[in-house]
Amino acid sequence: MSEVKTRAERVPAKPRKSPVREWFDSVLFAVVAATLIRWLFMEAFTIPTPSMENSLMVGDFLFVSKLHYGTRTPRTPLQVPLTHQKIWGTDIPSYSTAIQLPSYRLPGFTHVKNGDVVVFNVPPKYLNDNIDYPVDLKTNYIKRCIGIPGDVLEIRQREVFVNGKPFSKPPRSEQKYFIKTTEVLDANFFRKYEIVNDYRDPSQPTENWKPLEQYNDSTKTASMVGYQVNTTEDVIAKFREFDWVKGIEPMVDKPGEMSPGIYGTPTFKWNHDNFGPLTVPKKGATIQINPQTIALYGPVIELYEGNTNVEFTSTAIKIGGQPITSYTFKQDYYFMMGDNRDNSLDSRFWGFVPEDHIVGKAVFVWMSLDPNPANIWNKIRWNRLFRTID
């Protein structure tokens, strides 16, 4: 009698994966999934500096949406997954520039708007450890967008104006004040008002320090102590209610006083409290070349527009050896500022952010850890968990 085998019997059973192989497959799947999510949808960041306080605090962990403005296609595909510039814990580059691709942006469901909190690759080389990283590997910064393409922006005595209208100040934004008191204040006092990273103790003078003064009137004499603090208007209003606070002065640069390092100087006598007016470059817009436009847009033409062999002086620009009398911008640009206006290295110092440097929109804080807590029980800032960013 002939033997008949079923289909299941005829197909040899697959060998069972070893534990090591199962572990490797699981890790590989997790890495691929995380890389795709990080590239296409959402990426996690942390806040290392106080430039966005008090809207975002040092130690905040946030998610940044790639979908809002559209995901960028990779320019540097040869890169260790889930790294940025270097392999974790080393100085070994995590990428190779052997292949550089043109970058495109997938469709998003909105555009960068005035007031958006945006993560971007900071353009200047000196803010990238003086390394000429590819665009998609430059250092990530987070700031608030103040000017979009075509806007005319100006800062007058700290107040920002866009197209001639006052720009709404973020409710938790900070600025610098000098407080005169008859009381010696310590870190615990300032912590109550979320002034953790931005005050100066009188026992530790700094470059901007004002020395102790004598408070005198016809009835009494008392030693006065001065503190330079960066804080919100609401906190300053509370300080004014204390009878031992004898004076609060905004620390504001005067118009016409030029500060070194400000973008556009020395052609323009600007400082970080009085800046502009200037027009944010817009794709397709044409400018005439003169000393004023060279001071504002010369670096843009040289560094971010994809031009080769650019030479410029304070009075002339050459592209490919040919002098130009006008220039038409090839992409959009943005003007970014930190909410901590007096402690932020932003567009007032290094200029415009090109559109191809935009990473995504900050959407919410999912965790917040105080880097210098009063005690272990206060390490987590519970009131900041799952806070939306506006």
Rank of each mutant, 00 (worst) to 15 (best):
I287P: 07
V196I: 15
T182G: 12
P281G: 07
T6M: 08
I99V: 15
Q322D: 14
D243K: 13
I287H: 06
P50D: 10
S65T: 05
K138P: 01
V229Q: 02
A237G: 06
R21K: 15
R381G: 04
L78R: 02
N163K: 03
T388N: 10
P102Q: 12
T6Y: 10
M1F: 10
E241N: 11
E257Q: 15
Q288G: 11
A30S: 14
H68A: 15
V162T: 01
D151T: 08
E53R: 11
H357P: 03
C145G: 02
V32P: 09
I289Y: 01
E43M: 03
D60F: 04
V152K: 15
V280P: 00
F275Y: 14
K254F: 05
F161K: 03
G284C: 09
R387E: 14
N54P: 01
G247F: 02
S314H: 12
F63C: 06
P134T: 01
Y193P: 00
Y304S: 13
T293R: 06
L345I: 11
P371T: 12
I376K: 13
R38S: 15
F120E: 04
V225C: 00
S103D: 00
G226A: 05
P102A: 11
A362Q: 03
S223F: 05
N343R: 08
F275T: 04
T388H: 13
V32D: 06
K192W: 00
F189S: 05
T181K: 01
F109I: 09
D198C: 04
K210T: 15
G338F: 03
Y199M: 05
E159N: 13
T90L: 07
V245D: 02
V122A: 12
N54A: 12
W88P: 09
P170H: 13
A30E: 05
G276A: 06
L40S: 10
P19G: 08
K143A: 02
M1C: 11
A295D: 07
K14Q: 06
Q79F: 00
G338R: 04
V196H: 03
G306E: 09
V353N: 01
F329G: 07
G306T: 09
A33N: 05
R16W: 08
D60L: 03
E249W: 05
T286N: 04
